[in-house]
């Protein structure tokens, strides 16, 4: 078992087999610097719980394919990314920090799926981006590929 500590000082015990899916922790264990508690100053306990839930489920990725549990895993993945924006970004940051490749891919794909079909205005609002392009610059981008700015699918809602 490996102990992880979130930035709000909560400790979590995780099986080694699960936790080594994180390249970062795997390296730490291999180098022998994971003897006591591993502090994770960038991750709060709420996000860490999510990440551990993922790690535990994905513990035996290779086995799952054999036993036909792949669909089950896929379903879990779909459920897993069903969370709020803020939360999703927290998990992405954590996955990036811990270097968990599969989780990173999954969450980034989910984030991209949510952005897909959105209007530019909606994207700015969703990600709290202020538009720093001048009107001419913006027009130029639109003129480059006007077809990309039209289409029946454009979704102006923010969620």
């Amino acid at each position: 078992m490996v102990k992880l500590k979130s930035n709000d000082d909560k400790e979590f015990e995780v099986e080694e087999a699960a936790v080594i899916q994180s390249e970062m922790i795997k390296n730490m264990i291999e180098d022998g610097c994971a003897t006591s508690v591993i502090p994770l100053p960038n991750i709060d306990s709420k996000t860490l719980i999510k990440v551990i839930e993922y790690l535990n489920k994905h513990i035996n990725m290779g086995k799952a394919a054999e036993t036909g549990e792949e669909d089950d895993l896929k379903e879990f993945d779909e459920q897993f990314v069903n969370m709020g924006w803020e939360e999703l970004f927290d998990v992405i940051m954590a996955a990036n920090y811990l270097n968990i490749h599969e989780l990173m891919e999954l969450c980034c794909q989910s984030a991209a799926d949510r952005l897909k079909n959105k209007s530019v205005r909606a994207v700015r609002e969703m990600l709290k981006i202020t538009n720093d392009l001048t009107e001419e610059e913006e027009q130029e981008i639109i003129n480059d590929a006007p077809w990309a700015f039209e289409g029946p699918e454009i979704d102006d809602t923010v969620n």
């Binding site: 952005l115 530019v120 981006i129 990309a148």
Partner: peptide
């Protein structure tokens, strides 16, 4: 993201 949205989102910022 698919290409269409890449081109569109160039105008985000």
């Amino acid at each position: 993201l698919p290409v269409k949205f890449l081109l569109r989102f160039k105008s985000v910022s």
